[in-house]
């Protein structure tokens, strides 16, 4: 997958975003459900690029860099695959130029 757009790597892109990372993963992915999913829309639609397909057909999710936008659960076709809550109060993304 092409991870570079206009010379900005995704790591550099996310480095412009301020986070207060909490200890609790606010989004949990049930990889057993994901294994049967053929579309895996979350992988490409997530604007923070946090869903990574695993070799076994499941999904790895990195909650630390989440924008809390809701795209992943909205586009997900499989009930119960993505459990989505807000991070604990005061944690998560802090937009300064939104």
């Amino acid at each position: 997958m092409n991870n570079r757009w206009q010379g900005v790597s995704f790591t550099d892109r996310l480095a412009t975003v301020d986070y207060r990372v909490g200890e609790r993963a606010h989004i949990v992915v049930d990889s057993d459900v994901c294994r049967s999913c053929t579309t895996k829309a979350c992988v490409t639609a997530c604007p923070a690029n946090l869903f990574a397909p695993t070799a076994e057909g499941g999904i790895l999710f990195n909650y630390e860099d989440c924008f809390e936008c809701g795209t992943c659960y909205m586009v997900c076709n499989n009930d119960g695959a993505i459990t989505w809550t807000y991070p604990d109060g005061g944690f998560g993304v802090v937009f300064h130029r939104g």
């Binding site: 892109r13 996310l14 412009t16 924008f67 936008c69 795209t71 937009f95």
Partner: peptide
Amino acid sequence: IADLKEHPSIAPLLRGATLGEYSAHL
């Protein structure tokens, strides 16, 4: 966004700019 930034009517407006923050919202 990358495609839009390369559009001939948009690119000259942004020349030399650096990314300050990336964000998304529904």
